[in-house]
Write a protein that binds this DNA or RNA. Sequence first.
DNA 1: TTTTGTGAACTCCTTCACAGCT
DNA 2: AGCTGTGAAGGAGTTCACAAAA
Lengths: 220, 220
Amino acid sequence: MARLPIYLRALTTLAEEAVTTVSSEELASAAGVNSAKLRKDLSYLGSYGTRGVGYDVDYLVYQVSRELGLTQDWPVVIVGLGHLGHALANYGGFASRGFAIRALVDADAATVGTEIAGLRVRHLDGLEEEVRKHGIAIGVIATPAPVAQEICERLVAAGVSSILNFAPVVLVVPDEVEVRKVDMSIELQILAFHEQRKLGPERHGRLNDAVAELADAVST
Amino acid sequence: MARLPIYLRALTTLAEEAVTTVSSEELASAAGVNSAKLRKDLSYLGSYGTRGVGYDVDYLVYQVSRELGLTQDWPVVIVGLGHLGHALANYGGFASRGFAIRALVDADAATVGTEIAGLRVRHLDGLEEEVRKHGIAIGVIATPAPVAQEICERLVAAGVSSILNFAPVVLVVPDEVEVRKVDMSIELQILAFHEQRKLGPERHGRLNDAVAELADAVST
DNA sequence: TTTTGTGAACTCCTTCACAGCT
DNA sequence: AGCTGTGAAGGAGTTCACAAAA
């Protein structure tokens, strides 16, 4: 149910605009999906709509939040406070969405001890203690790629079972640990791929090899 | 082919380790996918493997790069230089992967004129001029959510046809414009969902309504 | 013998289309 | 009359399993 957070965001926006009721058509277009898909997705949570009317916005916000586990606050640790970790620590979107950054950890002596977003950065040595002390279940890895796997293993050993990985590596974890990854280079590369396609039909792997062959055949 | 960048990263790592040949099995495990899937993906680019042997790493790096359009450098503009935009501008992974950040643009007077990662930040007013001057086709939006759609429209009007969006909104664009989005809150919410599942079987939408009903039926 | 490249089967997700409520 | 909830159809992507090539 990777789309629930998008629905929740659209619903929250509607609630702020004092909208009380929304149809699947309206909500779907706000979320950028097909309305049948939205209805099917919501139907997995239960029958929270009213036929002929639509969905009650506040009620649906609550139900979706509950399904996502956002009726409680999840304590989070950020490992690695370079530019990215710094940006993450300061990102306001977390607190308002059910997450509480409880610990910041870094290996760099110049960073350790500084205060970021109201929290003091602790040395990497204290990682396990911080995880246990705050009952942290979600770890964010914003370290350089070469150390990400090691940090990941330490997080898992300390009891973390969900990891959000910003380092450009494929993390190896036990089956019961959930990993999500965010890789900006990969997103840009996907865009570059589409840009290239737009430039013209020349040189596009096998498709164009076939075209070239055809052109050859025709010209002879 | 959203997986090609992952294969490319694995291949680049192998090349750095002076590995010359790799089997689909090995490359697939490095990329975290099934080997049949990897072979099928690569087969769309052409037949670049040798049966009984595997793939030549350097040759495959070249072919995948070419397919992704990374044999040329793509000029990029970053709009919004808060913590996140700052982090993106300083992220070294771009330059080494076929992208060149050519312009930085922000609306905040305190940020305009400062130098970030060797580039001077220009006022938002100059957005269109920067896009034209550098022939920019890819725009990165790292602004607050409320202005993201407006920035997006200006980028598109100026000629940008691919957008990487970090603002937590669904952007509306013409069909020919490609949008990729990165939303850290959404990734965390997906993790929270899985964390909650692990906590116990109580209260999980319709599945548990069914279980509860069954329990009722049994107890009566 | 080893490993690719790929038809065929399978599984999962999406969309249609409409019966059933309000 | 209007909109949800959902079976059924359709499509896309994944995995199997093996023939063909080195």
